[in-house]
Amino acid sequence: MILYDLKCADGHRFEAGLASMFDDNPRCRCGAETSRVPASVRQLGTADTGRSREEMPTTWRGIQQGHPDVVRGWHREMSRREKLEEKHPELAGDRRPVLAHEGAFEGRPLRAGDPLATKVAQATFGTTKEATA
C-alpha cells in the first residue's frame, strides 16, 4: 500500500492508500476528479542532545541563589544528559578530573591518569625525558 496526497478541482486535499502506483486516483468525497500532489514535508521532531556539561551552571548565581524551580529544572536536564551519555558514551567527552590547568598546562590541562613525569618534563623543560636523580 502506497500513501498519496491527492487534491480535487475544488481544492479539497486528502491522503489515500493505493495498492499500486498504476492504480487510478480515487474520487474526492465531493465527487470531483483528483490528481496527485507532491507530499508535504513532515518533520515530527529534531534530534537535540540538550545542553552540554560545560553549559550547565557551576555557581550559586548560576542557579539563581538556589531558587527551587531553577534547581529542579537543571536537575531534570542533568539527569536527561546523564542518561544520554550512558547510552552514547562518545558524547560524555573526557570526564577525568583536571589536576593542573594553569601556567604550562593552560592550553593542555593535566588530567588524572596522564603520565605525570612525561607531561611535567615536557611542560617544564620542553622534553619528554624523565628527570633522573
Results as ranks from 00 to 15, higher is better:
Met1Thr: 12
Ile2Cys: 04
Tyr4Cys: 09
Tyr4Ala: 07
Ala9Glu: 14
Asp10Ser: 13
Gly11Pro: 06
His12Leu: 09
Arg13Trp: 05
Phe14Tyr: 08
Glu15Gln: 15
Glu15Gly: 10
Glu15Ala: 13
Gly17Asp: 13
Leu18Gly: 08
Leu18Arg: 14
Ala19Asn: 11
Asp24Phe: 13
Asn25Leu: 11
Asn25Val: 08
Asn25Thr: 11
Asn25Ala: 12
Pro26Leu: 02
Arg27Asn: 10
Cys28Met: 11
Gly31Pro: 04
Gly31Asn: 02
Ala32Trp: 03
Ala32Tyr: 03
Ala32Phe: 00
Glu33Gly: 03
Thr34Lys: 01
Ser35Phe: 14
Val37Asp: 05
Val37Asn: 02
Ala39Phe: 06
Val41Arg: 13
Arg42Asp: 15
Gln43Trp: 11
Gln43Ser: 12
Gln43Phe: 10
Leu44Cys: 09
Gly45Ser: 15
Thr46Asn: 12
Thr46Ser: 15
Gly50Tyr: 03
Ser52Asn: 06
Ser52Pro: 03
Ser52Asp: 08
Arg53Thr: 10
Glu54Asn: 05
Glu54Arg: 09
Glu55Lys: 03
Glu55Gly: 00
Met56Gly: 00
Pro57Glu: 03
Thr59Ile: 02
Arg61Gln: 10
Gly62Asp: 00
Gly62Ala: 01
Ile63Ala: 00
Gly66Thr: 03
Pro68Arg: 07
Pro68Glu: 05
Val70Glu: 10
Gly73His: 14
Glu77Ala: 11
Glu77Trp: 02
Ser79Phe: 08
Ser79Arg: 14
Arg80Lys: 15
Arg80Phe: 04
Arg81Lys: 10
Glu82Val: 14
Lys83Arg: 13
Leu84Asp: 08
Glu86Ala: 15
His88Leu: 14
His88Ile: 15
His88Ser: 06
Pro89Asp: 08
Glu90Trp: 13
Glu90Met: 12
Leu91Cys: 11
Arg96Pro: 09
Pro97Lys: 03
Val98Leu: 01
Leu99Ile: 11
Leu99Arg: 01
Leu99Gly: 00
Leu99Val: 06
His101Tyr: 04
Ala104Ile: 04
Phe105Asn: 05
Phe105Ala: 07
Phe105His: 06
Glu106Met: 12
Gly107Asn: 09
Pro109Asn: 01
Pro109Lys: 03
Pro109Val: 05
Pro109Ser: 01
Ala112Tyr: 10
Ala112Val: 13
Ala112Trp: 08
Gly113Ile: 04
Asp114Gln: 05
Pro115Gln: 05
Pro115Phe: 05
Thr118Val: 15
Thr118Asn: 04
Val120Lys: 05
Ala123Trp: 04
Thr124His: 10
Thr127Val: 14
Thr128Ser: 14
Lys129Ile: 06
Thr132Ser: 12
Thr132Gly: 06
Thr132Ala: 12
